[in-house]
Amino acid sequence: MRNLITSVIALLLAYQINAQGNLEDPEKTQSAQGSVAMKATLTSASRLFKDKEDLTSVIVIIPAETVVDVTNSDSTYLFVTYEEVEGYIFRKHASINSTPVTLTAGEERTGTISQSRPDDRPAQPAQRPVNDRRTLLTNKYGSDIASRMMAMKIWKGMTAEMVQDSWGSPRKIDRVINGNDVNEKWTYSKSWLYIENDRLVEWGPVR
């Protein structure tokens, strides 16, 4: 009887030790798996907002074709990091990379990225990015407006985004807020533009 009890106790101890050996530290497991980095490419110039509820809280204008890090998103906005500055951009102004990239702990420190593809998934043909400016403008506004923008033309009633797509980002923006009205003076190297409530109303030469 004593031998039987001793055998049972030995079996229980062996089972407990084996179970403890199979447990994994959640933090170590998460560290080993690494984190997922999502990136997006801007299809047009976009304003970076500090607060998505306040469209006057513009931090900077991000040029088209810039690649940014995406931290969070909803149906309207992306929360991104651009040159170590965080803020919100309109989701419609960016194209999220289709394949997320997994960074290991070592890669996060060095900044290098490795990407793997499961063996059971067939390789996809490489897609050529759309870098042609005329194609981008035509897809966005139509051929007539795209031709005018390619000729660097501006006209009254253009939206601020259209002005950026035609002339690029200004060197300076002076903003005056009066109630619900937002008036901006955009200064380029040789010209200034007045934009009232997101519409171009006047322009002239810099003196």
Rank of each mutant, 00 (worst) to 15 (best):
Gly34Ala: 03
Glu24Trp: 09
Tyr82Gly: 06
Glu83Asp: 12
Ser31Arg: 11
Ala64Leu: 03
Ala32Pro: 00
Leu55Trp: 02
Ile61Cys: 02
Thr76Ala: 15
Thr66Glu: 08
Thr76Asp: 08
Ser46Glu: 06
Lys39His: 07
Asp74Pro: 02
Asn22Val: 13
Ser31Phe: 09
Glu24Leu: 15
Glu65Phe: 14
Ser35His: 00
Ser75Ala: 15
Ser31Ile: 10
Asp25Phe: 14
Ile59Thr: 07
Gly34Arg: 03
Thr56Asp: 06
Ile62His: 06
Asp69Pro: 00
Glu24His: 13
Ser31Gly: 11
Glu53Tyr: 12
Glu53Lys: 10
Val58His: 08
Glu53Ser: 11
Asn22Gln: 13
Ser57Leu: 01
Arg47Ile: 04
Tyr77Met: 06
Val70Trp: 10
Val60Tyr: 04
Pro63Gln: 06
Pro26Gly: 15
Val67Asn: 08
Glu53Phe: 13
Gly21Tyr: 01
Thr66Ile: 00
Glu24Ala: 14
Gln33Ala: 05
Gln33Thr: 01
Asn22Thr: 12
Asp51Tyr: 13
Lys50Ala: 15
Asp51Met: 11
Asp74Asn: 15
Asp74Thr: 10
Asp69Arg: 11
Val80Tyr: 04
Glu84Val: 12
Val36Ser: 05
Ala32Ser: 05
Arg47Gly: 09
Val70Glu: 01
Val68Ser: 04
Tyr82Glu: 03
Val80Leu: 04
Thr71Arg: 05
Pro63Asp: 07
Leu55Gln: 04
Glu83Phe: 14
Leu55Val: 07
Gln33Trp: 09
Asp25Ala: 05
Leu23Pro: 00
Val60Trp: 00
Asp54Ala: 15
Pro26Arg: 15
Glu24Thr: 12
Val36Thr: 09
Ser57Tyr: 01
Leu23Phe: 03
Val80Gly: 02
Phe79Ser: 13
Val70Gln: 07
Glu65Arg: 11
Thr81Lys: 12
Val68Lys: 06
Lys50Asp: 08
Glu83Cys: 07
Asp54Ser: 14
Ala40Ser: 06
Glu53Met: 11
Gly34Pro: 01
Glu53His: 10
Asn72Met: 08
Thr41Arg: 03
Asp69Gln: 12
Ala45Asn: 05
Asp74Tyr: 12
Tyr77Pro: 00
Glu27Ile: 14
Ser75Pro: 01
Thr43Ile: 12
Thr76Leu: 14
Lys52Val: 07
Glu24Gln: 13
Glu65Asp: 11
Glu53Val: 05
Leu23His: 02
Gln30Phe: 15
Glu65Gln: 12
Gly21Pro: 02
Thr76His: 09
Ala40Lys: 02
Lys39Cys: 05
Ile61Asn: 04
Leu48Asn: 02
Ala64Arg: 03
Val60Asp: 02
Asp69Gly: 07
Gly21Val: 12
Asp74Met: 09
Thr29Trp: 08
Val67Asp: 10
Val68Tyr: 06
Lys28Trp: 08
Val58Phe: 03
Glu24Pro: 03
Thr81Glu: 14
Glu84Cys: 07
Ala64Val: 05
Asp54Asn: 15
Ser75Thr: 08
Glu83Asn: 15
Val67Tyr: 07
Ala32Asn: 06
Gly21Cys: 09
Ala45Thr: 01
Asp69Leu: 14
Asn72Val: 04
Ser73Thr: 03
Ile62Ser: 02
Gln30Glu: 13
Leu78Gln: 05
Glu83Ile: 12
Glu65His: 11
Val58Arg: 01
Val80Pro: 05
Thr41Asn: 03
